[in-house]
Design a protein around this nucleic acid. Structure first.
Length: 158
DNA sequence: GCCAACGTTGGC
DNA sequence: GCCAACGTTGGC
């Protein structure tokens, strides 16, 4: 068993669910991921306590705006079974769920955020394996190395 | 709102 | 199993 802390980045559209929303509710099931690669990171990769960079996408200044923690083991995303949900998946059954999620818990907001612009300026240091700025990659859940985590947080502008 | 770059679906 | 059509993501 590994006790190594792992790190992730998770995207959300702030109009849909923002870091302020997470601050208000405390803990939130990360519903709606419908990409297999992103799902697998949650289902097979995440452990309770892992660090999460909370990223705002599709907004005026995209970037990292807070820190959260993985707060549950993976379990089936309930919205896949809800006919009225926009995340409903007719091919999923409770016996054979397709989509899994974890709960995410608020830790803190980043004072000034870390803009995507700023992140790009450090592309070389972050390295090829940083999926956020890899060309053609649009993963909404992606792994972050300890070194990348450290570097990214050093870019916080108070 | 545009659109490039992906991912998924389904006919064949 | 190919691939065209369609849907989605997400920066700009």
């Amino acid at each position: 068993m590994s006790t190594r802390t792992r790190y992730w980045l998770m995207k959300s559209e702030p109009g849909d669910f923002s870091i302020d929303d997470l601050a208000r509710v405390g803990t939130e099931p990360w519903t709606g991921v419908r990409n297999y690669q992103a799902r697998n990171f949650m289902k097979d990769g995440m452990q309770v306590g892992d660090g999460v960079l909370f990223y705002h996408s599709n907004t005026q200044v995209p970037g990292i705006y807070g820190i959260a923690r993985v707060a549950s083991t993976p379990y089936p995303d309930p919205t896949q079974f809800q006919k009225t949900s926009k995340y409903f998946d007719p091919k999923a059954t409770p016996e054979q769920p397709r989509w899994f999620l974890v709960d995410v818990a608020f830790e803190r907001k980043l004072a000034g955020g870390i803009a995507l612009d700023t992140i790009r300026q450090h592309a070389e240091q972050l390295g090829e394996d940083f999926a956020l700025i890899r060309k053609g990659t649009r993963l909404s859940v992606l792994p972050v190395s300890a070194a990348q985590w450290k570097l990214l947080l050093s870019l916080e502008t108070p």
